[in-house]
Design a protein around this nucleic acid. Structure first.
Lengths: 200, 200
DNA sequence: GTCTATAGATCGATAGAC
DNA sequence: GTCTATCGATCTATAGAC
């Protein structure tokens, strides 16, 4: 295995894969050194804060990827319908049809959530805001847009859980198709599901 | 703290809380003994298989709770609409409006999924099957019922992720309300979202 | 910068007294 | 059946050679 590690950012994809596969707690330094091909000393040179700094850098790296490849497109006014379709395509690819975990979502479920609380919160908030922006551009009312965006992002996260639980990638694709179909339904006919809540 | 631990099953609620809060890897024996009020020796007396047997017992305990309190009601032909409403109420309560994690879902996202693969799979499959059963009783076609059930269970899991990520319990209640509203919409008007998929 | 060696703490699991 | 004491393994992190 070639070692083309000249700077800190070169290690991030490998580190990210380890955190995704084993979670924050399960990602031992043994696994992290193996994945990067670097010794502990080298890793600590790049990340003086140790594992926590590695995970924080990985989360930021992921956030930046989504900002560039998904969120910014959603916020662009051009063609909201196309932007949403592109989001679903990007998500399908990125999460490998549900085989690949969403690290941010996994952290949210774990007890390391508090450690990375702000990074986790802002990632999902940015996603919801960007999607709501596209939905408003496509003619939805502000409140409806935010509710639908929240529901859609939740649905994507749930699709990953379910696809992994059932070990069935078609569950992921099917749920994404469902969500996209819901979003693209013109709000004509039904008022986008009334207002919604009051569960209790 | 009183120690009313006469049998193995008495420890399960405390063990479950630790696994939920810290995940499988993060649940150390120190935490497990502290939560149960038992020494390591006592815990190993009840669970000779160690931590893995504890987690397996907890997963089965959770599955049994849902079978009794949710799934069986959904499968009963009485009043499907009421059974579904009862499911959403039970879920809202059980997951403490999203503050409490779904251990089975968290395991599905972690690398311990393979260790408990069958327990995880059967839990979600039973949930989907039971919900689909109620939906068919309420007049949905078989295929539509299963798709809607799958989508709803995924939505609930995603709602937990999002509620914890945003640290906002209203997100959970709102998404559950949305899902319930969708389910209760008579399939009249729109054909329950066509067929769905073909994302790619 | 990158490595090896190792410290110091904690891990899961076991043994044996009572 | 429950406890304390302790095992060997593994963990994160650091030190020092090169």
């Amino acid at each position: 295995m070639p070692r083309i590690v000249a700077q800190r950012s070169d290690t991030l994809p490998a580190l990210a894969e380890v955190f995704r596969e084993h979670g924050y707690e399960g990602a031992s330094l043994a696994l992290l050194t193996k994945a990067t091909g670097l010794g502990k000393g080298s890793l600590y040179h790049f990340f003086p804060g140790g594992k926590e700094e590695m995970a924080a850098a990985v989360l930021q790296h992921i956030d930046a990827w989504f900002e560039t490849n998904v969120f910014s497109t959603l916020r662009r006014p051009d063609d909201p319908h196309a932007a949403i379709a592109q989001m679903f395509q990007a998500v399908e690819k990125y999460f490998l049809s549900g085989r690949r975990v969403c690290l941010v979502g996994a952290v949210a479920l774990s007890d390391s959530r508090d450690r990375f609380g702000e990074a986790v919160r802002s990632y999902f908030q940015a996603w919801i805001d960007a999607l709501a922006c596209a939905l408003m551009q496509s003619g939805r009312k502000r409140e409806d847009a935010f509710l639908l965006a929240q529901h859609t992002v939740a649905g994507i996260q749930g699709a990953i859980v379910l696809a992994r639980a059932l070990d069935d990638t078609t569950v992921f694709s099917r749920t994404l198709g469902w969500l996209e179909n819901q979003i693209c339904q013109p709000s004509a006919g039904r008022p986008a599901c009334e207002t919604g809540p009051q569960t209790q």
